[in-house]
Design a protein around this nucleic acid. Structure first.
Lengths: 357, 357
DNA sequence: TTGTAAGCGTTATCAC
DNA sequence: GTGATAACGCTTACAA
């Protein structure tokens, strides 16, 4: 046998499965449970002596208060639920990180649920979260009907902040990207390059972000007095595969577009892939601009012109709104917009190195 | 003034949104709380009549049992803690998704913590999770010392499965990628292309994945009777920026390497970026191969040869191990390896279209 | 300043 | 079969 195995801890002898409770601390400190509680939480007035005794006992026993019991008693779990269509997607993962940061700081824990892009999944997720008595909800919805939302979480009174996938004016607030502005910038820029036959890979129309981007596309084209030709608007899921599929269709149109705006980076990559298959050169044969910038945008072939923003800020902003709402139920509803900006690279037709306006 | 303005929240609104409790259900059904509990949980024998009555009452009242109370009483929270260095990283986000899937299926919820790549963060996260009485832990560590781990979670007896960032033989099991095999394949392939001066962007050496990749690099070079020149091994953080930095150094060496193996895709992108700055052509002047495949690997300039695998499977496998451990504390420790394979593209020097062995 | 007692909403162990 | 009753571990009036 190992000669120097760790000494069977003399202090904590019994490998007590049962964790040490407040009562244990109280007993060791020679006070009542309530006093111990007060000492630990800094509530009420106690003599310095007893406070010290309790703290010492707690330390010695390595006391960890049960958040479960505490939550049950105080009716606050310091936990918030986070619901997204797909955690593995870079955007949601980043938003999650941002949210988690500010929530952590504010003393909240996050319980995560993935709706798998289905309304049923969302409903289930919200139900579960509510049963766990979360103090608040951060959700990006994939087309949850408003009355369903009201039915499921509305009556619970749990504050809910939406982000990216918004639900009308429901909940305690919302955070979106500047979808309109972003698409407008993209279209404007392609028009500057002289394009008139511009198409849109529109993304999912069950999500507000997709809807807003499509709407803005139409409005901006109209503003330029450009007509959107038949089949030039391609709604689809947000995936690279759909982007490729829709782009093939676009390229087969007569006349084909001379420029494409992709409502997301996945869609843009799909378009690039389709062009490669068909031998269509970007930007010479087809100009391309995309919503969502990525850290590899510069290294693509060609480098991708896109709308950049800070995805973590979306999560942070939403979390801040939620924390406010949880602390003060009366705080009024706020709608925030996270700013975006155009990053010019080669795919739109800009010359290499052209990054200034 | 608005006639139905929200009631002025008196500091903390007293109008308790008290949810319906088991007692309420019992009362409506005309039975005792214990009977109601049994009916709802399908435990014990009851008459069909009462069971129906309880179910109906619960339905009518839209009763949602408090998981908090249930957990407190049963000493099981059906919650597992998930700790990673960086949720926003594609790999961890995917692993999270995979884990979440199987945990959800098994009836568990996941509470998420981001250690921000710091040991202190990890310790804090584990502590918090334990206070919340999680039933299990899924963690990817950034160099947590084993004795710290034992101190923090060891004595709690909470089962813990490590993945990607492993901790010796601690915990109830572990899941890693085939790091050795992956790097070996990469080196073998570059050697096939005739390279001898091969360098490694080694990644972080505080994580087991980084360490294993470096070790395998050395072993494989030795197997080929190739020597690793001074300065050809570049440990660094896992970021694109570090990749660029280290690659600049590599390119400035005399003689410079003719091929680079990157231990992660971020590192590879950094290398591509550095090459672009310097006018070094890939693969003509420098061949490049990378651990981690990405969905955009094909669209890079040039397309990136890399080691592919299913990141979600890492999470799924780890979750399965954990579920087993939570159900059966006696189950013995298992170490799993998730398979990887080489995807040949242009960056290593393979001809366009060459994907077969 | 400190202790007693009453819960928070469940489930488990008894009796009946 | 079903119902009291006692926990689970904590907080908080209310007493003392």
């Amino acid at each position: 046998m190992a000669s120097d195995s760790p000494p069977p801890s003399a202090a904590v002898t019994a490998r007590t499965k049962r964790s040490v409770t407040l009562a244990d601390v109280a007993e060791v400190a020679g006070v009542s449970a309530s006093t111990a509680s007060r000492a630990l939480n800094g509530r009420g007035e106690l003599s310095d002596a007893t406070r010290a005794a309790v703290l010492e006992a707690a330390e010695a026993l390595r006391f960890q208060p049960s958040e479960l019991a505490r939550s049950l008693r105080t009716r606050t779990s310091y936990t918030v639920g986070f619901v997204v269509p797909d955690v593995a997607s870079p955007f949601y993962a980043s938003a999650l990180k941002g949210a988690q940061q500010v929530l952590e700081q504010a003393g909240y824990r996050v319980m995560l649920m993935d709706s798998e892009q289905e309304v049923a999944g969302e409903v289930a997720a919200l139900g579960t979260l509510l049963k766990h008595q979360v103090d608040g909800l951060l959700v990006s919805t994939t087309g949850l009907p408003e009355r369903t939302f009201d039915e499921v979480v509305g009556r619970s009174g749990t504050p809910c902040v939406f982000f990216d996938g918004i639900l009308g004016d429901a909940g305690a607030g919302s955070v979106s990207l500047e979808n309109e502005a972003g698409i407008a910038e993209l279209v404007d820029h392609l028009v500057e390059h002289g394009h008139e036959r511009i198409a849109l890979l529109a993304g999912s129309q069950t999500e507000t972000s997709g809807v807003e981007r499509l709407t803005s596309f139409r409005a901006t084209m109209r503003r330029h007095r450009l007509r959107v030709r038949d089949g030039y608007e391609r709604p689809s899921p947000w995936s690279l595969d759909s982007g490729r599929l829709e782009s093939r269709t676009l390229l087969a149109l007569t006349p084909p577009p001379t420029a494409v705006v992709a409502a997301s980076v996945e869609l843009a990559l799909g378009c690039m892939s389709a062009c490669r298959e068909r031998g269509v050169r970007i930007p010479d044969d087809l100009a391309l601009g995309s919503f969502d910038d990525s850290y590899f945008g510069e290294l693509l072939d060609p480098p991708l012109t896109s709308i950049a923003y800070d995805p973590e800020e979306v999560g942070r902003a939403a979390a801040r709104l939620l924390v406010d709402a949880m602390r003060d139920a009366g705080s009024d509803r706020r709608e925030l917009l996270v700013p975006v900006h155009l990053v010019r690279r080669r795919s739109c037709g800009c010359a290499p190195g052209a990054t200034a306006a």
